[in-house]
Protein backbone atom coordinates (compact mmCIF):
# COMPACT_ATOMS: atom_id res chain seq x y z
CA UNK A 1 0.00 0.00 0.00
CA UNK A 2 2.62 2.57 1.02
CA UNK A 3 4.76 1.79 -2.04
CA UNK A 4 1.77 2.24 -4.31
CA UNK A 5 0.88 5.51 -2.58
CA UNK A 6 4.46 6.79 -2.79
CA UNK A 7 4.57 6.03 -6.51
CA UNK A 8 1.26 7.68 -7.38
CA UNK A 9 1.93 10.49 -4.90
CA UNK A 10 5.28 11.36 -6.49
CA UNK A 11 3.73 11.35 -9.96
CA UNK A 12 0.84 13.50 -8.71
CA UNK A 13 3.14 16.03 -7.06
CA UNK A 14 5.28 16.29 -10.20
CA UNK A 15 2.15 16.87 -12.28
CA UNK A 16 0.96 19.51 -9.82
CA UNK A 17 4.26 21.42 -9.93
CA UNK A 18 4.38 21.23 -13.69
CA UNK A 19 0.78 22.48 -13.92
CA UNK A 20 1.62 25.33 -11.55
CA UNK A 21 4.60 26.57 -13.56
CA UNK A 22 2.95 26.20 -16.96
CA UNK A 23 -0.28 27.80 -15.81
CA UNK A 24 1.68 30.73 -14.30
CA UNK A 25 3.20 31.43 -17.69
CA UNK A 26 -0.17 31.54 -19.47
CA UNK A 27 -2.17 34.77 -19.48
CA UNK A 28 -2.64 38.12 -21.16
CA UNK A 29 1.10 38.69 -20.72
CA UNK A 30 3.03 35.59 -21.68
CA UNK A 31 6.04 34.87 -19.50
CA UNK A 32 8.58 32.14 -20.26
CA UNK A 33 8.39 29.02 -18.08
CA UNK A 34 12.12 29.16 -17.37
CA UNK A 35 11.88 32.63 -15.84
CA UNK A 36 8.98 31.56 -13.68
CA UNK A 37 10.91 28.58 -12.38
CA UNK A 38 13.81 30.83 -11.41
CA UNK A 39 11.45 33.39 -9.88
CA UNK A 40 9.85 30.75 -7.64
CA UNK A 41 13.17 29.20 -6.67
CA UNK A 42 14.45 32.65 -5.70
CA UNK A 43 11.74 32.85 -3.05
CA UNK A 44 13.03 29.73 -1.30
CA UNK A 45 15.12 30.86 1.69
CA UNK A 46 18.80 29.98 1.42
CA UNK A 47 18.57 29.40 -2.30
CA UNK A 48 17.48 32.88 -3.36
CA UNK A 49 20.86 34.63 -3.34
CA UNK A 50 22.38 32.28 -5.89
CA UNK A 51 19.78 33.14 -8.55
CA UNK A 52 20.17 36.35 -10.52
CA UNK A 53 17.17 38.52 -11.30
CA UNK A 54 16.88 38.60 -15.07
CA UNK A 55 13.27 39.71 -15.42
CA UNK A 56 11.29 42.93 -15.30
CA UNK A 57 9.92 43.92 -11.87
CA UNK A 58 6.48 44.13 -13.51
CA UNK A 59 6.68 40.48 -14.45
CA UNK A 60 7.37 39.59 -10.86
CA UNK A 61 4.40 41.72 -9.79
CA UNK A 62 2.11 39.86 -12.17
CA UNK A 63 3.28 36.48 -10.94
CA UNK A 64 3.46 37.13 -7.20
CA UNK A 65 0.51 39.45 -6.74
CA UNK A 66 -1.95 38.25 -9.36
CA UNK A 67 -1.40 34.83 -10.83
CA UNK A 68 0.26 32.87 -8.03
CA UNK A 69 -2.30 33.65 -5.29
CA UNK A 70 -5.12 32.86 -7.69
CA UNK A 71 -3.61 29.55 -8.75
CA UNK A 72 -2.69 28.53 -5.21
CA UNK A 73 -6.19 29.35 -4.01
CA UNK A 74 -7.58 27.29 -6.88
CA UNK A 75 -5.40 24.36 -5.82
CA UNK A 76 -6.63 24.59 -2.23
CA UNK A 77 -10.28 24.85 -3.28
CA UNK A 78 -9.89 21.92 -5.70
CA UNK A 79 -8.13 19.80 -3.09
CA UNK A 80 -10.77 20.62 -0.45
CA UNK A 81 -13.70 19.77 -2.70
CA UNK A 82 -12.14 16.56 -4.01
CA UNK A 83 -11.18 15.29 -0.54
CA UNK A 84 -14.63 16.15 0.78
CA UNK A 85 -16.19 14.41 -2.22
CA UNK A 86 -14.14 11.24 -1.65
CA UNK A 87 -15.20 11.25 2.00
CA UNK A 88 -18.88 11.74 1.11
CA UNK A 89 -18.78 8.90 -1.42
CA UNK A 90 -17.08 6.66 1.12
CA UNK A 91 -19.39 7.31 4.02
CA UNK A 92 -22.65 7.40 2.01
CA UNK A 93 -21.46 4.48 -0.15
CA UNK A 94 -23.08 6.13 -3.11
CA UNK A 95 -21.22 6.93 -6.33
CA UNK A 96 -23.39 10.01 -6.95
CA UNK A 97 -22.52 11.64 -3.64
CA UNK A 98 -20.49 14.83 -3.82
CA UNK A 99 -19.62 17.61 -1.37
CA UNK A 100 -22.90 19.35 -2.13
CA UNK A 101 -25.12 16.27 -1.59
CA UNK A 102 -26.17 17.46 1.85
CA UNK A 103 -27.19 20.89 0.60
CA UNK A 104 -24.18 22.83 1.86
CA UNK A 105 -23.65 24.67 -1.41
CA UNK A 106 -27.28 25.75 -1.58
CA UNK A 107 -27.15 26.93 2.02
CA UNK A 108 -24.04 28.98 1.34
CA UNK A 109 -25.53 30.32 -1.89
CA UNK A 110 -28.66 31.43 -0.07
CA UNK A 111 -26.61 33.33 2.50
CA UNK A 112 -24.56 34.95 -0.24
CA UNK A 113 -27.61 35.69 -2.39
CA UNK A 114 -29.46 37.43 0.45
CA UNK A 115 -26.42 39.60 1.20
CA UNK A 116 -25.92 40.52 -2.44
CA UNK A 117 -29.64 41.13 -2.98
CA UNK A 118 -29.79 43.67 -0.17
CA UNK A 119 -26.35 45.08 -1.01
CA UNK A 120 -24.91 44.02 2.34
CA UNK A 121 -21.73 42.33 1.04
CA UNK A 122 -19.46 44.73 2.92
CA UNK A 123 -21.76 45.52 5.83
CA UNK A 124 -20.23 44.31 9.09
CA UNK A 125 -16.92 42.57 8.44
CA UNK A 126 -15.71 44.34 5.35
CA UNK A 127 -14.70 42.04 2.52
CA UNK A 128 -15.09 39.09 4.90
CA UNK A 129 -18.82 39.54 5.38
CA UNK A 130 -19.79 37.37 2.44
CA UNK A 131 -17.42 34.42 3.09
CA UNK A 132 -18.38 34.45 6.76
CA UNK A 133 -22.11 34.42 6.12
CA UNK A 134 -21.76 31.82 3.34
CA UNK A 135 -19.82 29.55 5.69
CA UNK A 136 -22.37 29.92 8.48
CA UNK A 137 -25.45 29.36 6.31
CA UNK A 138 -23.75 26.32 4.77
CA UNK A 139 -23.04 24.84 8.20
CA UNK A 140 -26.60 25.58 9.41
CA UNK A 141 -27.98 23.75 6.37
CA UNK A 142 -25.98 20.67 7.35
CA UNK A 143 -27.46 20.78 10.85
CA UNK A 144 -30.99 20.99 9.47
CA UNK A 145 -30.40 18.10 7.05
CA UNK A 146 -28.94 15.93 9.82
CA UNK A 147 -31.88 16.75 12.09
CA UNK A 148 -34.36 15.95 9.31
CA UNK A 149 -32.88 12.55 8.59
CA UNK A 150 -32.13 11.45 12.13
CA UNK A 151 -33.98 8.38 13.32
CA UNK A 152 -33.59 6.97 16.86
CA UNK A 153 -30.10 8.44 17.13
CA UNK A 154 -29.03 6.76 13.90
CA UNK A 155 -28.51 8.28 10.47
CA UNK A 156 -29.96 6.10 7.71
CA UNK A 157 -28.01 6.81 4.53
CA UNK A 158 -31.02 6.94 2.24
CA UNK A 159 -32.86 9.35 4.51
CA UNK A 160 -29.79 11.55 4.61
CA UNK A 161 -29.46 11.73 0.84
CA UNK A 162 -33.18 12.44 0.41
CA UNK A 163 -33.14 15.18 3.04
CA UNK A 164 -30.12 16.70 1.30
CA UNK A 165 -31.82 16.66 -2.09
CA UNK A 166 -35.00 18.22 -0.70
CA UNK A 167 -32.97 20.93 1.01
CA UNK A 168 -30.98 21.59 -2.16
CA UNK A 169 -34.02 22.07 -4.37
CA UNK A 170 -35.80 24.26 -1.84
CA UNK A 171 -32.86 26.57 -1.18
CA UNK A 172 -31.96 26.50 -4.86
CA UNK A 173 -35.45 27.78 -5.68
CA UNK A 174 -35.07 30.65 -3.22
CA UNK A 175 -31.71 31.58 -4.74
CA UNK A 176 -33.19 31.52 -8.25
CA UNK A 177 -36.02 33.74 -7.06
CA UNK A 178 -33.59 36.28 -5.63
CA UNK A 179 -31.53 36.13 -8.82
CA UNK A 180 -34.59 36.97 -10.93
CA UNK A 181 -35.72 39.70 -8.59
CA UNK A 182 -32.41 41.56 -8.48
CA UNK A 183 -32.31 44.14 -11.23
CA UNK A 184 -28.57 44.46 -11.81
CA UNK A 185 -27.64 43.91 -15.40
CA UNK A 186 -24.50 42.13 -14.38
CA UNK A 187 -26.00 39.71 -11.94
CA UNK A 188 -23.66 39.27 -8.98
CA UNK A 189 -25.72 36.47 -7.45
CA UNK A 190 -25.53 34.42 -10.61
CA UNK A 191 -21.79 34.93 -10.81
CA UNK A 192 -21.29 34.00 -7.19
CA UNK A 193 -23.24 30.76 -7.56
CA UNK A 194 -21.09 29.76 -10.53
CA UNK A 195 -17.85 30.29 -8.67
CA UNK A 196 -14.83 32.45 -9.26
CA UNK A 197 -11.24 32.67 -8.14
CA UNK A 198 -10.46 36.15 -9.39
CA UNK A 199 -9.45 39.06 -7.14
CA UNK A 200 -8.93 36.93 -4.05
CA UNK A 201 -5.31 37.31 -2.89
CA UNK A 202 -3.20 35.70 -0.21
CA UNK A 203 -5.49 36.33 2.77
CA UNK A 204 -8.12 33.97 1.35
CA UNK A 205 -5.44 31.31 1.12
CA UNK A 206 -4.55 31.87 4.75
CA UNK A 207 -8.21 31.40 5.65
CA UNK A 208 -8.77 28.18 3.72
CA UNK A 209 -5.44 26.47 4.43
CA UNK A 210 -6.12 25.59 8.09
CA UNK A 211 -9.47 24.03 7.17
CA UNK A 212 -7.90 22.00 4.41
CA UNK A 213 -5.00 20.85 6.59
CA UNK A 214 -7.15 19.83 9.55
CA UNK A 215 -9.89 18.31 7.41
CA UNK A 216 -7.43 16.39 5.27
CA UNK A 217 -5.52 14.96 8.23
CA UNK A 218 -8.73 13.90 9.94
CA UNK A 219 -10.34 12.35 6.87
CA UNK A 220 -7.15 10.55 5.89
CA UNK A 221 -6.86 9.14 9.41
CA UNK A 222 -10.35 7.64 8.97
CA UNK A 223 -9.55 6.04 5.63
CA UNK A 224 -9.13 2.53 7.07
CA UNK A 225 -12.54 2.90 8.67
CA UNK A 226 -13.99 3.94 5.29
CA UNK A 227 -12.42 0.81 3.79
CA UNK A 228 -14.18 -1.31 6.41
CA UNK A 229 -17.44 0.48 5.72
CA UNK A 230 -17.17 -0.49 2.05
CA UNK A 231 -17.86 -4.08 3.17
CA UNK A 232 -21.26 -2.97 4.49
CA UNK A 233 -22.43 -1.20 7.63
CA UNK A 234 -23.31 -4.31 9.59
CA UNK A 235 -20.10 -6.11 8.75
CA UNK A 236 -18.05 -3.03 9.60
CA UNK A 237 -19.68 -2.77 13.01
CA UNK A 238 -18.95 -6.46 13.66
CA UNK A 239 -15.32 -5.68 12.93
CA UNK A 240 -15.15 -3.08 15.66
CA UNK A 241 -16.17 0.09 13.85
CA UNK A 242 -18.58 2.52 15.46
CA UNK A 243 -20.49 3.17 12.25
CA UNK A 244 -22.72 6.00 13.44
CA UNK A 245 -19.88 7.91 15.03
CA UNK A 246 -17.85 7.53 11.83
CA UNK A 247 -20.73 8.86 9.74
CA UNK A 248 -21.34 11.86 11.97
CA UNK A 249 -17.74 12.88 12.23
CA UNK A 250 -16.81 12.38 8.58
CA UNK A 251 -19.94 14.16 7.31
CA UNK A 252 -19.42 17.11 9.64
CA UNK A 253 -15.71 17.49 8.86
CA UNK A 254 -16.19 17.07 5.10
CA UNK A 255 -19.06 19.56 5.12
CA UNK A 256 -17.14 22.20 7.05
CA UNK A 257 -14.28 21.76 4.61
CA UNK A 258 -16.73 22.23 1.73
CA UNK A 259 -18.34 25.26 3.35
CA UNK A 260 -14.90 26.84 3.80
CA UNK A 261 -14.04 26.25 0.13
CA UNK A 262 -17.42 27.52 -1.08
CA UNK A 263 -17.23 30.63 1.08
CA UNK A 264 -14.01 31.80 -0.63
CA UNK A 265 -14.74 30.72 -4.19
CA UNK A 266 -18.49 30.32 -4.64
CA UNK A 267 -20.03 27.10 -5.85
CA UNK A 268 -17.72 25.09 -8.08
CA UNK A 269 -19.40 21.88 -9.12
CA UNK A 270 -18.17 18.55 -10.46
CA UNK A 271 -14.69 18.65 -8.90
CA UNK A 272 -15.85 16.82 -5.81
CA UNK A 273 -17.88 14.34 -7.83
CA UNK A 274 -15.54 13.51 -10.67
CA UNK A 275 -12.02 13.69 -9.25
CA UNK A 276 -12.50 10.91 -6.65
CA UNK A 277 -13.99 8.73 -9.40
CA UNK A 278 -10.99 9.33 -11.65
CA UNK A 279 -8.66 8.39 -8.81
CA UNK A 280 -10.73 5.30 -8.04
CA UNK A 281 -10.55 4.20 -11.66
CA UNK A 282 -6.77 4.51 -11.63
CA UNK A 283 -5.88 3.15 -8.18
CA UNK A 284 -8.76 0.98 -6.90
CA UNK A 285 -10.98 1.33 -3.86
CA UNK A 286 -8.48 1.84 -1.03
CA UNK A 287 -9.33 5.12 0.73
CA UNK A 288 -5.85 5.31 2.22
CA UNK A 289 -4.80 6.06 -1.37
CA UNK A 290 -7.96 7.71 -2.72
CA UNK A 291 -8.02 10.53 -0.17
CA UNK A 292 -4.48 11.90 -0.60
CA UNK A 293 -4.56 11.44 -4.37
CA UNK A 294 -7.94 13.15 -4.60
CA UNK A 295 -6.32 16.16 -2.94
CA UNK A 296 -3.61 16.22 -5.61
CA UNK A 297 -6.03 15.42 -8.43
CA UNK A 298 -8.49 18.11 -7.31
CA UNK A 299 -5.69 20.67 -7.21
CA UNK A 300 -4.47 19.79 -10.72
CA UNK A 301 -8.01 19.68 -12.15
CA UNK A 302 -8.74 23.10 -10.71
CA UNK A 303 -5.50 24.69 -11.96
CA UNK A 304 -6.35 23.73 -15.54
CA UNK A 305 -10.04 24.60 -15.24
CA UNK A 306 -9.17 28.02 -13.89
CA UNK A 307 -6.52 28.58 -16.54
CA UNK A 308 -9.16 27.88 -19.15
CA UNK A 309 -11.66 30.10 -17.30
CA UNK A 310 -9.40 33.13 -17.29
CA UNK A 311 -7.83 32.79 -20.74
CA UNK A 312 -10.32 31.34 -23.23
CA UNK A 313 -12.45 34.51 -23.49
CA UNK A 314 -9.73 36.93 -22.35
CA UNK A 315 -10.05 39.71 -21.29
CA UNK A 316 -13.43 38.39 -20.11
CA UNK A 317 -13.79 35.41 -17.77
CA UNK A 318 -15.89 32.29 -17.90
CA UNK A 319 -17.27 31.36 -14.46
CA UNK A 320 -15.13 28.47 -13.28
CA UNK A 321 -18.16 26.38 -12.32
CA UNK A 322 -19.10 26.40 -16.00
CA UNK A 323 -15.65 25.17 -17.04
CA UNK A 324 -15.53 22.36 -14.47
CA UNK A 325 -18.98 21.19 -15.55
CA UNK A 326 -17.88 21.42 -19.17
CA UNK A 327 -15.02 19.02 -18.50
CA UNK A 328 -16.74 17.09 -15.72
CA UNK A 329 -20.08 16.30 -17.31
CA UNK A 330 -18.76 14.44 -20.38
CA UNK A 331 -16.47 12.48 -18.12
CA UNK A 332 -19.36 11.62 -15.92
CA UNK A 333 -21.37 10.46 -18.90
CA UNK A 334 -18.45 8.22 -19.80
CA UNK A 335 -18.47 6.76 -16.28
CA UNK A 336 -22.16 5.96 -16.54
CA UNK A 337 -21.62 4.32 -19.90
CA UNK A 338 -18.76 2.27 -18.50
CA UNK A 339 -20.65 1.04 -15.47
CA UNK A 340 -23.60 0.06 -17.65
CA UNK A 341 -21.26 -1.86 -19.90
CA UNK A 342 -19.73 -3.62 -16.92
CA UNK A 343 -23.14 -4.55 -15.60
CA UNK A 344 -24.05 -5.99 -18.99
CA UNK A 345 -20.92 -8.08 -18.86
CA UNK A 346 -22.06 -9.38 -15.50
CA UNK A 347 -19.37 -7.84 -13.36
CA UNK A 348 -21.58 -5.61 -11.26
Amino acid sequence: MSKKLAGYGAAGLALLLLSLVVSLSIGSVHLPVKQIGAMLLQKIPGLGNSIATVWEPSAEQIIMKVRLPRIVLGMLVGASLAVAGAAFQGVLRNPLADPFTLGVASGSSLGAAVLIFYGLQYSFAGAWTLPLVAFLTGAITLLIVLALSRENGKIPTHGLILAGVVMQSFLGAVVSFLTIMSRDTLNDILFWTMGSLSMRGWTYIAVLLPYLTAGFVYLWSRSRALNLLSLGERQASHMGLNVDRLKWSVLVVATLLTAAAVSVSGVIGFVGLVVPHMIRLITGSDYRIIIPLSALGGAVFMVWSDTAARTLLSPGEIPIGVVTAFIGAPFFAYLLYRSRKQRREGRL
Binding site: L228, S230, M239, S285
Partner: peptide
Amino acid sequence: TNFTVREVLEMGRYP
Protein backbone atom coordinates in the same frame (compact mmCIF):
# COMPACT_ATOMS: atom_id res chain seq x y z
CA THR B 1 -15.14 -5.48 -3.69
CA ASN B 2 -11.83 -5.11 -5.43
CA PHE B 3 -9.81 -5.32 -2.25
CA THR B 4 -7.49 -8.31 -2.40
CA VAL B 5 -7.78 -11.37 -0.16
CA ARG B 6 -4.80 -10.22 1.88
CA GLU B 7 -6.18 -6.70 2.30
CA VAL B 8 -9.48 -8.14 3.51
CA LEU B 9 -7.66 -10.29 6.08
CA GLU B 10 -5.77 -7.20 7.22
CA MET B 11 -9.11 -5.47 7.77
CA GLY B 12 -9.88 -8.21 10.30
CA ARG B 13 -7.03 -6.78 12.37
CA TYR B 14 -8.83 -3.43 12.69
CA PRO B 15 -9.78 -3.87 16.37
